[in-house]
Design a protein around this nucleic acid. Structure first.
Lengths: 143, 143
DNA sequence: ATGGCTGCAAATAGTTTGCAATGAG
DNA sequence: CTCATTGCAAACTATTTGCAGCCAT
């Protein structure tokens, strides 16, 4: 638990500032959750976060994990994904991007924005505008 | 409840045959659910179906609605959508197509396949193939 | 100090399952 | 007849909420 690359050290060091910049009070649990999730682009479920933290001896409750994730999402620090019908995924990459979804394993992988280009999109209904464009490419083992 | 267009009469008349063609035994509850959902392309939640049927005096339990919807989905008669984190939507349009999602009302609208064209798609990981391509265009009132 | 956090447990929402009674073939 | 299907209630999973005590500011 002490090997810290230069990159992650810098990233992690930023976290308290990022939280405060969003008007989020810094607490031990929030730091732990933020370090886990914001250190690199990734997709985690509330359960994975709870287990990961409790596994490394951090005291945190399920309720706090959910409260914190909802707070982070409301402040734009993370994005909640609806890919799966059973659980929510929290994505630390808030830049626009798309996803691969491996149907067999449930794994989610990012697809960078420039990897997809639309040559045609539907006309948007009157008075509406696009809030976001979610693309999920579901994959299965090649037959 | 007696105005039946030629089209829907034909469509509805097909339902028992469609169920049997999928190896699904025809029962009163399954017919009711199928008529509600398969009569036209639409998106319904399990709760909407349960309420609609019970509202018109049909005896059906929540459990049977879920069992039936899961059975229909497994047999390819309908498609389950993960658009929303709270509930599942069941789509009677099993042809490939995309969706608008009105974030304010939660309403789902179909976007026909030819309305969207991709001029570039990412390289698919080794040994995998595309099972489906889910595109959700989330809409909000124009600012 | 004081109001925002936290943990716990209980409450909710959506969905699934076990089992006895019922109904389709 | 016989096994699939149904309804009910209870079980489950994911998530939210109420409340007393704790902690960042």
């Amino acid at each position: 638990m002490k090997a810290i690359s230069q990159e992650s050290a810098v990233t992690f060091g930023d976290i308290p500032a990022r939280l405060q910049a969003c008007g989020i009070r810094v607490t031990a649990q929030r730091m732990q959750i933020a370090e886990l999730l914001l250190g690199a682009p990734q997709h985690l479920s509330a359960e994975q976060i709870t287990e990961a933290l409790q596994g490394r001896g951090v005291e945190v409750s399920k309720a706090t994990v959910y409260n914190t994730l909802n707070l982070f999402a409301a402040r734009g620090l993370i994005r909640q994904l609806a890919v799966d019908d059973t659980r929510s995924w929290f994505d630390s990459n808030v830049q626009p991007h798309y996803h691969f979804h491996d149907e067999a394993t449930g794994a989610l992988t990012d697809v960078a924005l420039p990897e997809v280009e639309f040559s045609r999109l539907p006309r948007i209904p009157e008075g509406m505008e696009v809030a976001s464009l979610d693309l999920v490419i579901r994959l299965r083992p090649k037959s």
